[in-house]
């Protein structure tokens, strides 16, 4: 399976629902039938109340959970937490798409609300500290805002942020590039060896 490096969606691709990410996670198409319409409405109601996230909030792609603005924000956060380095990052691994799909096929309304609240809190911090939406900040400033948010939210046991971060981390290391390029993945190790110098392995086991 080939992994294409993330190049970013154009807004038109997002609107047309024609975007696809290689790397094992297909998005768009065929998901609409799985959407839980009642849950979607509840989340929409919450989103509408979150006045910090108004930009293009009404724009949705069929079969997806996050609005375009929310999805853009999720992409930036995923990218900032697990960036491309000498190995692919969260975007190439399709992490935001996987999370969007989980919101549609997996999450209960309360969990969806947590995610919206978690995203909104980061955007709110950007507006509070810099007067503009998180998405409009320079990358270095975004990193700085999210770093401080990360430290404070984790030490305050912020459930929504903790869930967001651990899901992004998990989705990345369970992806093919995360497991096989960033870490060591051995599907069939054979006999267990109990004491092996770390240098012989070199990196954390993915599983």
């Amino acid at each position: 399976m080939s992994i294409s490096r993330y190049s970013g969606f154009s807004r038109r691709q997002l609107l047309s629902g024609g975007a696809r990410i290689a790397g094992g996670i297909a998005v768009g198409g065929g998901l609409a039938a799985c959407a839980d319409s009642a849950g979607q409405e509840a989340s929409d109601g919450l989103a509408a109340r979150l006045d910090t996230l108004t930009t293009r909030d009404a724009l949705r792609r069929p079969g997806h959970f996050f609005s375009i603005a929310q999805f853009r924000l999720l992409e930036r956060i995923s990218d900032l937490i697990m960036p491309e380095t000498d190995t692919p990052g969260a975007l190439a691994a399709g992490v935001p798409q996987l999370i969007d799909r989980m919101m549609v096929t997996w999450a209960l309304p309360e969990t969806r609300s947590d995610w919206l609240a978690g995203l909104a809190a980061i955007d709110a911090r950007a507006r509070r500290e810099h007067g503009v939406a998180f998405a409009r900040l320079e990358p270095d400033t975004q990193f700085d805002v999210l770093s401080r948010h990360d430290g404070e939210a984790l030490s305050a046991s912020d459930r929504a942020y903790r869930q967001m971060k651990s899901t992004i981390v998990e989705a990345y290391y369970c992806s093919e590039p995360g497991a096989t390029e960033e870490l060591r993945y051995d599907p069939v190790p054979g006999p267990y060896r109990g004491c092996v110098p770390f240098d012989e392995i070199g990196r954390t086991w993915a599983t």
Binding site: I81, D150, L154, R162, E170
Partner: peptide, 11 residues
């Protein structure tokens, strides 16, 4: 890697 979800630090 699971510890990464709960420890401070990003990037």
């Amino acid at each position: 890697w699971r510890r990464g979800g709960g420890q401070a630090g990003i990037g």
